[in-house]
Amino acid sequence: MSVATDILHTNVQTGKETIKMSGQKVCVHYGEKQALFDVDLDIVANQVISLIGPSGCGKSTFLRCLNRMNDTIDICNVSGEITLDGQDIYDKAIDVVELRARVGMVFQKPNPFPKSIYENVAYGPRIHGMTRSKDELDELVTSSLRRAGLWQEVKDRLDQPGTSLSGGQQQRLCIARAIATKPEVLLMDEPCSALDPIATAIIEELIDELRENFTIVIVTHSMQQAARVSQKTAFFHLGKLIEEGPTEQIFTNPHHKKTQDYITGRIG
């Protein structure tokens, strides 16, 4: 009996969990409208955490707080504290440009730039001046494409436009583009919602591999996807964080009735 329970619980208790990012009492207002209410959420290093919840519950909003993408929206106002490695990212001393290089983002719809595949990946390193020579840049582009699992497919056509790739390839190109700036955290906002099952599976496999080097926060509408790729799951509802915990627990035995109702598809 005790052996069995040990096996059951090893998954959850692998070693020490270091907290990479953390939100404390995060509130977000869009003008008058409050979109997030006192969200407290820790993001553990080298884990995948998925944010689930009905549309409009504030998942993207929270995600966009993590790399201050909300700064680009004039009416958006963030309060509370969000830290990256213990440092407040909304601090005056923080350079947003540098923060976004450290906390990369992949969007719902693949959005390759109207440039060649090579230029797409080289974009981040170029604007941040990350490489000293052309060779170094080549090397970085190649390794990013490799890690995004796209190298084999595009190595002979790096000068073709990124938009000429298929949807799944485009999304991997966007992932390659994001990891080329060597981020520590990767934010993904519904990265597979526009892809077919095979492309989705490839991306999921990729996410699993990327976990070794990155901390990943993924917003998804697919319960199955959250269950497949993530170690932690957080459920949002109407701007509040309802429940957060190990993925197994959330999907087999959620503690909160709202979570249960949402993931089993019942009217809340």
């Binding site: 790399n67 440009v97 990369g104 983002m105 959005n111 390759p112 730039f113 109207p114 440039k115 974009y123």
Partner: peptide, 23 residues
């Protein structure tokens, strides 16, 4: 989405315009 993508990589507004929007 292109603007967001560029900003998400840490580009400033004018970099985004010069390198992404105008092309």
């Amino acid at each position: 989405s292109l603007r967001d993508g560029s900003a998400g990589l840490g580009a400033t507004k004018s970099e985004t315009i010069r390198r992404v929007i105008l092309p």
